[in-house]
Amino acid sequence: MSDHDISVTVNGARLKKRVPARKTLLDFIRQDCGLTGAHAGCEHGVCGACTVIVDGVAVRSCLMFAVQTDGAEVRTVEGLSPAAGDLHPVQAAMHEHHGLQCGFCTPGIVMTLTSMTENNATAAEMNAAMSGHICRCTGYQGIQKAISSLAGDVNNG
């Protein structure tokens, strides 16, 4: 049972921490970084609530170990807003189109959509990626509307 020193950038801040090998990235973000936006849902890769962006791609933080992010750049929902009180365009679209109710799954969805809009994904691609997120409140209709508006934004430059 080994402990490891890691150096990882979380939402732009370089952190040096010591972590047990078995600590998931999700537990690291929540417990060691104090960022509780990434949610612990199923904790075995099914629900998508823990989705964060590691080195530019959306991943499930419960299926990675913190030690694996040594040298990596991690982004969580807390790092999206450009300034206090402002919303990231994905957050604004979710707000505008009522893409959430209880909000538990929302940070994961927002991180998936953020990574995809940054890569100019189409609405069809983003809707397909929603299979990786379980939302039990919205029926996905509001989320799909948010996606349509985001895809329109991207296409309109």
Binding site: M1, S2, P20, A21, R22, D27, E43, V67, Q68, D70
Partner: peptide, 11 residues
Amino acid sequence: MKPPPFDYVAP
């Protein structure tokens, strides 16, 4: 932590 304890190497 959910996983059992293990050692880790990243060659």
